[in-house]
Amino acid sequence: MEKKTSLFQQILRFGVVGGGAFVIDYGIMVFLTEVVGINYLLSSAISFTVSVIFNYILSVKWVFNVTGERSQKQDFAVFIVLSIIGLGINSLVMWIGVTKFGINYMITKIGATAIVMVYNFITRKVFLENGK
């Protein structure tokens, strides 16, 4: 029988994984925008997508109590759908922050990440655990 991870442990682990994903996401976004010259919305979407793969692997293996009632392909599909919604939230917050409020994209990304992080934890907890 697998040992269940407590909610407190999950939150801590999610924070560690999320921190790593943020470094990947933010670093790639800034690199693509500042060095390569890609528009901030496109570079943000690309960096977000790369960080999702990192996040998926560690979330399933280390953070959440994924029971294996679904196949890995099904779990990944659920994760991708949730992540696409998260990408939509991220892009919307980026667009509103930068275009409507004139906030620098690097600062806006921090707020967008915080919002999406809460969304990610709640939805992944609900939909990944227990094969729901």
Rank of each mutant, 00 (worst) to 15 (best):
S51I: 02
S47A: 12
K132S: 15
F121G: 00
R70G: 12
N90H: 11
Y119A: 07
I53R: 03
V93K: 02
I103C: 01
E129L: 05
K109C: 00
G68Q: 04
A114K: 08
L32D: 03
T123L: 04
F48Y: 07
F22Y: 10
Y119I: 03
N120Y: 08
R70A: 09
V60W: 08
V16S: 15
Y40A: 06
V63M: 06
A112R: 04
N65K: 02
A112E: 09
Q74V: 01
I28H: 06
G15F: 04
K125W: 14
N65F: 02
S44R: 11
M94W: 03
I57R: 15
F121T: 05
G131L: 08
N120M: 05
I115W: 11
I107M: 10
V17Y: 07
D75Y: 15
K4T: 09
F127W: 13
V93M: 06
I89L: 07
Y40I: 11
F101N: 04
N55F: 10
N130F: 01
Y56C: 03
D75I: 14
A114S: 10
I110R: 03
L7S: 11
T67W: 04
F54N: 15
V36L: 07
I57S: 14
L128K: 01
A21V: 06
T113M: 03
T49F: 09
I11L: 13
F101T: 09
I107Q: 12
I85S: 00
V78N: 12
Y105M: 03
K125A: 14
V93L: 09
G18C: 02
M94E: 13
V16T: 15
F48H: 00
F22W: 12
V78R: 14
D25H: 11
L42R: 14
F121A: 05
F79M: 08
I103D: 00
K4H: 07
A45D: 03
G19V: 11
D25K: 09
I115P: 08
G86I: 01
V60G: 11
S44L: 07
V17R: 10
E129P: 05
F121L: 06
V78Q: 09
S71W: 02
S71H: 00
F101D: 02
I57E: 14
N104L: 12
V63T: 07
Q10I: 06
F127Y: 13
K73I: 13
A114Q: 07
V78P: 05
F22E: 00
F22I: 01
N120I: 05
K73A: 10
V17A: 06
K73R: 11
Q74D: 07
G37L: 08
G111W: 12
V35T: 12
M94L: 02
G97D: 06
V16Y: 13
I122K: 10
N90F: 05
Y56L: 05
F22Q: 12
V35M: 10
T113W: 03
V93D: 08
L41Y: 09
K4I: 11
T123S: 08
K100W: 15
G111V: 09
I85A: 04
S43Y: 09
S6Y: 07
Y119H: 11
I96C: 01
V126E: 00
F54M: 13
V50M: 10
R124F: 13
T113N: 04
G15P: 00
V118Q: 08
K73F: 08
S59R: 03
V118M: 08
A112F: 05
T99L: 13
V118I: 10
L58V: 07
I53A: 14
